[in-house]
């Protein structure tokens, strides 16, 4: 669980990564998820390379395994991150979906 101030600080950075385009370099399917991600398993994570040359590990959403290949194009999207209880702050983060 992240503290409210950590979530607030993190959310301020989201705009810098909105609608960035890039491609998948490598991907994996995570079956054994860490705490906070159990409800999403199995899920896909990739290292993506953006058009500006920067690279980042991102969770992939709205995709199927057959769609995932090296050089597959992606675009970043904002999605809820992890699972919180009713009295915790919902955290959003950048993920990527194939296009």
């Amino acid at each position: 669980m992240s503290s409210p101030v950590t979530v607030w600080r993190h959310h301020k950075n989201i705009r810098n990564y909105l609608r960035k385009k890039g491609k998948i370099l490598v991907w994996t399917k995570v079956f054994n998820a860490p705490a906070g991600f159990e409800h999403e398993a199995p899920y896909f994570v990739a290292i993506v390379k953006f058009e500006d040359g920067t690279k980042m590990p991102l969770q992939l959403v709205e995709c199927e395994e057959k769609d995932l290949k090296p050089n597959r194009k992606i675009i970043t999207v904002v999605r809820k991150r992890g699972k919180v209880s009713l009295d915790e702050v919902i955290e959003y983060g950048i993920k990527a979906k194939p296009i």
């Binding site: 995570v30 054994n32 860490p34 590990p57």
Partner: peptide
Amino acid sequence: QERKAGLTFPALYALLAQ
């Protein structure tokens, strides 16, 4: 950033394997 992406150590080494 790796933690935020839901990666684990097996997953990081899986990326190296891939």
